[in-house]
Amino acid sequence: MFLSAENMLGGYGETTILNDCSICVKKGEIAVIVGPNGAGKSTAMKAIFGMLDLRAGNIIFDGKNISDLKPQERVKSGMGFVPQTHNVFTSMTVMENLEIGGFTNQENLSKNVSEVFKLFPVLEEKQKQLVGELSGGQRQQVAVGRALMTNPKLLMLDEPTAGVSPLVVKELFEKIISIARTGIAILMVEQNARQALEIADNGFVLVQGENKYTDKGSKLLSNKEVRKAFLGG
């Protein structure tokens, strides 16, 4: 396993949100966390990224226990994170967003920029435009592109399709698949459970902070209980 978060237990203040929750991803694979509202999906991701102190559990990343590292240090060790909101610098151009993304990775800057542009050609066209003026889908591409600038080995996406038009969702997922093809592990929280599971190698269905179902994406899609409870039949 490239990333395995084991038996996470934690929450905000007194309340417990994650209850013995485990998530894992392999290199080059896509793992998707789905579940009803308030199941702790985003919280699980934040815990993996170090934005939430855990009361129990370990996070093993690339063979090392990183449970005590701060988010910034986790970025250095190879994690990339795209928050759900406020994930771009709106007052800066596309190019500047990528440059800031690669702030600590100056030597590979131009190489990484051209790779991001290869992945998201539209960004190359609009590289001098302010991100605040872009459409929702394009902003998400900037956000993902920014996170890729650190050459992460694991990319975490918190609801990347939130607020993006349905037509663009498909395109965005295709991009995510092609990112995974380059050998990057991808962990994603999604509201669009059905579409997300279609592209997922592994799926984690969380309910009240616990792993309810864990299986291959395709298996979850065909699992009757899962379909009934979470995918609307």
């Binding site: 250095k76 406020h86 007052s91 100056q106």
Partner: peptide
């Protein structure tokens, strides 16, 4: 300049600037 841009980034979105290693 790189430093100037990091200032603007920090002003625009502090959390994201921190994640970017500023």
């Amino acid at each position: 300049t790189r430093t100037g841009k990091s200032m603007r980034a920090f002003s625009d979105n502090e959390d994201l600037a921190l994640l970017s290693g500023i």
